[in-house]
């Protein structure tokens, strides 16, 4: 390896200073936008409060500098950013650490890299995620890892891990990737899924796997009401995200269309732990 190819990680630290009156769209808080920039240049990057265009430096104290590329750039946000949307949107590489809670659309359409939030995130986080890693220590809102409205291509790949609970409509139209929720989830899990894996370690409610064509949903806790289109097949011993246990395996959704492979119909699966 030549010396010039050695990764030189640089860190940019954003410390919230002024609260916006309304909310700000900050889709430019990404390693991609910060790479190759000094603190001064980063402070001059645009953010949007309603119909007004402002500067990142108005709302944040900026220190450090971006690395040569996105992959070499780490962003640390010190504190809650409850009125900031779209952090890490479409990022392709690098890292973001939010030491606190953030608003909607964290890591929406992200394509690579890693986001770690020590607090909570609001709705639409990981929307249409293509790849990368999103880890939330607290709770996530509704539509985690779901498709954008009208899009039939939801989460494609990558991993979302939530240590707390998640809201409703997680993994809608999911095509691939993995979502792991350590806590409980609200209604609608993996609706219209055509692939991918969702693991709920707490309890589910109802409407799990509705209209699912393909994909796997694991629920460790209770399911209040099973969708009528699921049929119990057999018990299986599995190791799921480090837990070895026996699961009841259901196939469905029987009301939905399904493809065939080698003459066999491929269904979606719900596994419920005993």
């Amino acid at each position: 390896m030549r010396l010039s190819e050695v990764m030189m990680m640089e860190t940019v630290t954003l410390t919230p200073k002024a609260q916006p009156d309304l909310y700000i769209d900050a889709e430019n808080i990404t390693p991609d936008a910060f790479a190759g920039k000094t603190a001064e240049e980063i402070a001059a990057i645009h953010v949007h409060e309603g119909n007004q265009t402002g500067l990142l430096g108005t709302y944040f104290e900026v220190s450090g500098k971006g690395g040569a590329t996105a992959a070499e750039t780490k962003i640390v946000i010190k504190g809650d950013v409850l009125r900031v949307k779209y952090i890490g949107m479409r990022m392709t590489a690098g890292e973001i650490l939010i030491e606190g809670s953030a608003d909607m659309y964290v890591g929406a359409w992200m394509e690579g890299g890693r986001i770690h939030v020590t607090g909570n995130v609001d709705a639409f986080s990981g929307t249409g995620m293509k790849d990368g890693e999103l880890e939330i220590d607290g709770n996530a809102g509704n539509y985690l890892g779901a498709a954008y409205r009208g899009d039939w291509r939801g989460m494609q790949s990558g991993t979302i891990r939530v240590h707390g609970n998640a809201g409703s409509d997680i993994g809608t139209f999911m095509n691939g990737g993995t979502i792991v929720i350590d806590g409980d989830v609200d209604v609608h899990v993996g609706t219209h899924a055509e692939g991918g894996t969702i693991i709920v370690k707490g309890n589910g409610k109802s409407k799990i796997g509705g209209q699912m064509v393909k994909g796997d949903i694991y629920v460790f806790g209770t399911i209040d009401v099973m969708m009528p289109g699921y049929v119990y097949r057999e018990n299986v011993d599995l190791e799921v995200d480090g837990t070895k246990a026996t699961f009841a395996m259901y196939e469905g959704d029987m009301g939905e269309r399904h493809g065939k492979r080698k003459g066999q119909v491929i269904y979606g699966h719900i596994y419920q732990k005993y």
Partner: peptide
């Protein structure tokens, strides 16, 4: 949601 789904299942003749 469940009842609508059940009608679809019934249309397909599934259990």
């Amino acid at each position: 949601y469940e009842l609508l789904s059940a009608l679809r299942v019934a249309l397909r003749g599934a259990p």
